[in-house]
Structure formats: structure tokens, C-alpha cells
């Protein structure tokens, strides 16, 4: 027995809930935002671990360590945080339809991220304490390392989006990739601000 599609329009699927046949609706952004919220809990866990250990420590800094040098990291931080602005600019260009403006600022953001990472690596190299030097050393490298991993991931994601921007028809299905990457980047920046306060400002 052959059947027809429903004549009653109300029985038709809600277009918002289900795209045209064959292509399923895309909830990437919803999922990605939930993911970021969840991911932030890991940082929260590390932050609270750091705080708890620091508050209960009898000798927080390893012997011979005075404290962290904060000027260079501050410059790094400024670069990283302002890259939140450049990525927003890139998106704005994208919105205006200026693909090249988008690519330029996108690339600039990547460069700023890379600068930050390099600065971080430089700092690590210059430090006189290691991963296993007490809980201070452990948490310092854990926090900066885990955050650095996120920065690297962000740069990788941006590179991917940059490459994809050259594919014809790339944006036909929406721009979730770009929006998600940019959200991720803002997230990484906000985390860094907290991290900076915790590691460098709080003595």
C-alpha cells in the first residue's frame, strides 16, 4: 500500500527541529556551548585544587624560588586577551561578506595565540623549578600546561577553519565552525585571565 505524505501541515515536521530530508538539522552550537560549560569545570577543579593546596601549604614556594616574574607574562596576557578582539573583528568581516578581511584577522589571531604559546614556553624554560618541585611546581605546570594545550587546540581549530574558508560552498550549511572556534577562543582567554590572577597576582 502506498502512502502519501500528510496533507495536514501541522503534522509536518517542525522545520526548526528537522531540516530538509537527508540533511539532519544542525545543533553543533548548542552542543558546543554545553561542551564549553562542562570543560570549564575541569579548570574549576584545578583552580580549587590550587587554592586549597596553597591555602594549606606550610611552605608554598620551593626553597630558592622567590616568586614568579610577572612582567613578561603580563605582556603575553595582553596579547592573548586582545586576540579576543581580533577574532571578533574577523567574524565581523565575515558577516560583512569580506572573506579576505576575515582571513587576515583570523590569521592575526592565530599569530597572537602562537606568540602567547612561545612566550609561555620561554617562561617555562627560564624557571628554576620543575614539575615535581612540591605542590607549587606541580600545580603551576599543570595549570599553565593544561591551558596551553587549549591555546594550541584553538590555533589548530583556527587553522582548520582557515583552510576550509577556501573550499567552495563551505558556508552553505552555516557558519557553526567559525562561531564555535571563536567561542572557544574567548573561553580560552577568560580562563587565562582567571589563571593569571591566581598564579601571578595572588601572592
Amino acid at each position: 500500500m502506498s502512502t502519501s505524505s500528510p496533507l495536514d501541515p501541522s503534522a509536518a515536521p517542525d522545520p526548526a527541529a528537522h531540516g530538509e530530508h537527508g540533511g539532519h538539522p544542525n545543533f553543533t552550537l548548542t552542543g558546543f556551548v554545553i561542551f564549553l560549560l562542562s570543560e570549564s569545570v575541569i579548570f574549576l577543579a584545578f583552580f580549587s585544587g590550587y587554592t586549597a593546596l596553597k591555602l594549606s601549604a606550610t611552605a608554598w614556594l620551593p626553597s630558592g624560588v622567590e616568586g614568579l616574574e610577572w612582567q613578561t607574562p603580563l605582556i603575553n596576557s595582553v596579547v592573548l586577551v586582545s586576540s579576543s578582539g581580533t577574532i571578533a573583528l574577523a567574524e565581523w568581516f565575515k558577516h560583512r561578506g569580506s572573506l579576505w578581511g576575515f582571513r587576515a584577522f583570523w590569521l592575526l589571531t592565530m599569530a597572537m595565540g602562537a606568540y602567547f604559546l612561545l612566550g609561555q614556553a620561554q617562561e617555562w624554560r627560564s624557571l628554576s623549578f620543575g614539575f615535581t618541585d612540591g605542590t607549587f611546581g606541580g600545580t603551576f605546570y599543570l595549570l599553565t600546561g593544561f591551558h596551553g594545550l587549549h591555546v594550541a587546540t584553538g590555533i589548530l581549530l583556527m587553522a582548520l577553519m582557515l583552510l576550509k574558508s577556501f573550499l567552495p560552498g563551505n558556508y552553505d550549511g552555516g557558519e557553526q565552525g567559525v562561531v564555535a572556534t571563536s567561542l572557544f577562543w574567548h573561553f580560552v582567554d577568560v580562563i587565562w585571565i582567571l589563571l593569571f590572577l591566581l598564579l601571578y597576582v595572588w601572592r
Binding site: V41, I42, A45, F131, T132, L142
Partner: peptide, 25 residues
């Protein structure tokens, strides 16, 4: 799951580091 698991994961990562590379969390 979304709220709790990351915390456990964070704690487990620190445990693994204590176990394998000698941190002292």
C-alpha cells in the same frame, strides 16, 4: 554528568601524574 565528570577527570589526571611522574599533589 556534564558538571561532575570534569571534576573527577581533573582529580584523576592529578592522581595519574602522582603515580607516574612523581608530582606530589
Amino acid at each position: 554528568q556534564l558538571i561532575g565528570l570534569p571534576a573527577l577527570t581533573g582529580g584523576a589526571v592529578m592522581l595519574l601524574l602522582d603515580l607516574t611522574v612523581g608530582t606530589t599533589f
